[in-house]
Design a protein around this nucleic acid. Sequence first.
DNA 1: CACCGCTGTGACATCGATTACCTCGTCTCG
DNA 2: CGAGACGAGGTAATCGATGTCACAGCGGTG
Lengths: 335, 335
Amino acid sequence: MKRPRARLRDVAEAAQTSTKTASRVINGDERVSAATRARVEQAVVELGYRPDPLARSLRLGQDETIGVVVDEVGDPFFASVIGEIERMALDRGVSVIIASTRRRAERERIVLDGLFQRRVAGLIIASISDDHAYLRTSSCPLVFIDRAAEDLAADAVVVDDRGGARMAVEHLMRHGHRRIAYIGDRLSTATARYRLAGYRDAIEAAGIAFDDDLVAQVEPAKGDAGVAVEALLRMTDPPTAVFSANTRCSLGSLPTIHRLRRTDLGFISFGDFAMADTLTPAITIVDHSPEAIGRLAAERLFSRLAGDEPPVETILAPLRVVPRGSGELAPEVTA
Amino acid sequence: MKRPRARLRDVAEAAQTSTKTASRVINGDERVSAATRARVEQAVVELGYRPDPLARSLRLGQDETIGVVVDEVGDPFFASVIGEIERMALDRGVSVIIASTRRRAERERIVLDGLFQRRVAGLIIASISDDHAYLRTSSCPLVFIDRAAEDLAADAVVVDDRGGARMAVEHLMRHGHRRIAYIGDRLSTATARYRLAGYRDAIEAAGIAFDDDLVAQVEPAKGDAGVAVEALLRMTDPPTAVFSANTRCSLGSLPTIHRLRRTDLGFISFGDFAMADTLTPAITIVDHSPEAIGRLAAERLFSRLAGDEPPVETILAPLRVVPRGSGELAPEVTA
DNA sequence: CACCGCTGTGACATCGATTACCTCGTCTCG
DNA sequence: CGAGACGAGGTAATCGATGTCACAGCGGTG
């Protein structure tokens, strides 16, 4: 075990053949005689040879690595997505490079650029940008998650944002609410737009006038959700229930709701979070299943990497309402 | 923008010089005349040249990439740690490869092996294994997180597990509790051992007899924490408070405590989690600060990569009790 | 018997950047 | 005036694996 690492050349020498033939054996080329193959295989074992992935990648022009680009690695939703992707990648011996955009389009370009520079084999992207022209010539398969790329024909794994939001709001309505607030990101992502549209769908389908004052759009990074929900509750004609369009907003607004002791408020969250079922009342959610999204995205990517060429598709991850209490509270009968 | 990518040779040709000189300019070698330097720099800009990291890594025998190995990427604690590391890496243009061990020592070896094979520049590891002999000859800097390597002189960023646990239990005692249960991982990691030791320190320092029946050690992956806490509460002489030795156990046991409507129970958690401050009562914690751990570990690693050679050190990340309610409940005065 | 095609093999170029080593002036100093 | 130092820059080898292509040997075929 003195030698730091065995090279293909060492294997070839030990097997008394050329590097090319050794390479053939290792890459499973058929055209090698049984005797030579056996010698090479033995040499590989004896020397503990493992091909250098860097050299291999350089020659092949492609790295056995996939890139995952998300808003923020620490976000629980993306953490779960990444966890699932990494699990599947590890089974295939593929490394995962992660990068976060901090929700800034220019950062997205930089990190994607870096990943292309590294010649990743494939990419899974939660894109923040609207403009994907620079990805059009991408030489590796792309799978979008959470938000589809509208200006690019590429696979995507998303949830039915509009339908899910509508489902959530209708759930509140079934329990008697008519005045329902919306709280979501100000961010102009497609996801945010769709969820707001779904909220509106439900409101209007119920014959209720859409009230702009009930819609709060806040900065995702700051603690504005709490402020916003407090303002909503202080209205002259306050909502009896809140639809939180994403997990961050739920995490931001619930502490305030509890501080104000307004746990009588109807509440439904698009996206689950830890302890949602342990709060009092437990929080009714529309289940996102980040694991399912990660799995579906990774499956699609690996399938393309394996050479499959299924038609480009936007896959809808399953979505369902999980009633836990907060979404089933009837509105208070107040003046 | 026709050419897929410019190579150093293209730059050299455009600047009417050799690759060697172009390389000198790019790598900031002084021995180049101003005129030549200017020509090369212009060519770089015009061609949009960016060195190929793969080729560079191959030649240098080292990759501009760091590896991060944790139990599970989806774990909120590690997700935050990774988020912070990735943030610092991105600022330096370093890629981050992540891999999870699933808490299995044999997996740890496999993923570490893969990372070494890739010639990562440095590693940050939450090691699950006790045996680090195979890391002794590691050619790249290592920084351990969460758990120090006891059999290896390497940097580590950990929290004062024993002191923190003692602090937590003493906090409960200050509020009148004498019968305090411990719930933690069965896993034989140093972390778990230290925290149990800290619990014992506090108990014995208070002159209370250590009662083995109050110690529950559960499987981390399963939902055993809930079962265990239920068993504790059903004892003939039940505890009045619980010290949960980690976030997973807190997340596992709190739903059960709430289901049993035992929110009168004293509770303190080693490690924060989302919504801990929104539960009723809010959960008192010993703050871990995963971000601080990630930052300190990354700082140390980058400092070594920059050539600094500070003495090997185990850095203690800050730790403090954050009172929120559940840890300040007085014991019920029962028979 | 000459030729074709197939199999197993290896010498050599290649991927793109770095570097050991060399060349060619010019400048300095004894 | 010649030796040696030094600055600027080039040539070719190198990192490790793989693709190109040529070649030898063999069996079959018209």
